[in-house]
Design a protein around this nucleic acid. Sequence first.
RNA 1: UGGGGAAUCGUCUAAUGGUAGGACAGCGGACUCUGACUCCGCCAGUCUAGGUUCGAAUCCUAGUUCCCCAGCCA
Length: 563
Amino acid sequence: MTSPETPVREAGQDFIRDIVTADRDAGRVGEIVTRFPPEPNGYLHIGHAKSICLNFGVAQEFGGRCNLRFDDTNPTKEEQEYIDAIERDVAWLGFDWGGKAVHASDYFEQLYAWAVDLIRAGKAYVDDQSQEEMRAARGTLTEPGTDSPFRSRSVEENLDLFARMRAGEFPNGARVLRARIDMASGNINLRDPVLYRILHAVHPRTGTAWCIYPSYDFAHGQSDAIEGVTHSLCTLEFADHRPLYDWLIENLPVPSRPRQYEFARLNLTYTLLSKRVLTELVRGGHVDGWDDPRMPTIAGLRRRGVPPEAIRDFIGRIGVARADSLVDIAMFEASIREILNRSAPRRMAVLRPLRVVIENYPEGEGETLEAVNNPEDPEAGTRTIRFTRELYVEREDFMEVPEKKFYRLFPGNEVRLRYGYFVTCREAVKDDAGEVVELRCTYDPATRGGESPPDGRKVKATLHWVSAADAVPAEVRLINPLFTDPEPAPGNFAASLNPAAREVLTGCMLEPAAVAGNDAAPIQFERLGYFSRDRDSQPGAPVFNRVVGLRDSYARQAARGNG
RNA sequence: UGGGGAAUCGUCUAAUGGUAGGACAGCGGACUCUGACUCCGCCAGUCUAGGUUCGAAUCCUAGUUCCCCAGCCA
């Protein structure tokens, strides 16, 4: 079990860790064993990251182990692609599961034997009812169910039928194996739950070896027991299944007694975390795939440029509890900035270029200036940038008629060009349509390198810029929340899909050092945000994704003024 | 009207009968060659009503609100 730093909790720990601590201190358990049990029917998302960090984190903190176990009991939905993607994502998040992943399917033979034990003990029976009949006989939330006419078959007949189910004598849906518990239970999960169903399907791991598959309820707890899991952590919706989990453990000769604990799943504003919705987004072509940078999947976040440290930091900050919650996406963004601020090299890039001509700078000449790579990290050193007569600045850094508190470029105003010179805007050149197409400026040679001038003159803004002759054109994709509604309705997600979730900007101008390396390690475009090279980049045609923007108190205050 | 769970600043989360604390967000200020970062300050909470107690977020009683469960999904 290896993983980078675990966030330190200031006060108290969460209730899960309290329980584990108490169990350990009371000697109720030896080695702490947990597991992360994904079903390989989709990609992992940030909600899974909460479970991953919890399960692997607890095991690590208590010197135990955590298995990566695939809950692969439904071959009609599961695929090898998902198995591979899940392993890749968990590893990327920084966790390791001791060499090889395990699978519920590894235990199919043992599970089958235990099902036979249950039949022998009169605690399970083969039911011939159709799905509709079973549903009708299950009762409702307020009315008890009624016993199946097949409920009191003889052990011999049940044994025979179950063996023939396995042998493939019956079609899908013809029969199921059910636990014999209590059709009148207030807990519907105890109304003779299905243990095995017939599924003539090719399983990604066991192929066609089986045509009957255990249900989640029958496979999960027993798999936990086989692996010696001490604390089986799952989300709240399984709380109703705990009595069944315990019933099976108590009625089967399992090698250990795991205990299940439930915690609240993660919900995020402007985000939908449900495999059903995410799958529809992919299949419906609303996004370009599971790793589309707009997706809340681990693969999408990775491609967007979010570092795994930021995900871990975020999960550490939100804590673990049993109350339903909806976490502000701003908290996730804060974690991303926290990590990237100290690690991302700084570069200059102009997203929406506005040409600037420095009138008193000699034509055809240029010079090399020095720029700091990361003010948060002196070790990161410096780089050089080119200054010439023609530059690009950000369009929104110019206002012909400045609103109050606007300190940037406007006719007559002087600003600092970062690491460059003080420049004063003399005139805005417009085209026939009245659009500003160029700024005529002058510079002060006494301010080279961005230093303040000898006369002590001050300037209220420092702008980013790039030399027109040296700039590298690029495409930049601004990634925004996928939904416009802070709490989108899962059943009608299309209604709140954000058409501006990806804004594609072309003709962006970057300083050459921004594309010097070839890796996707995020860099900060000064004053704009953190950006990461996308794999869509071609030689000479780089593409960047915005990981997250910088905090922008000017924009906030301006928006407030307009609102 | 069955069963299971949960209610603490706007949001997330601590406090385990003894000063309701932290983070995010917001607001104000300092600093600044990034309107970033950093630093300082402010704002703001125990679902309601009773009860027990010297003392209640915590214990008791009665309510209220919200979430989950009627797959041969997990």
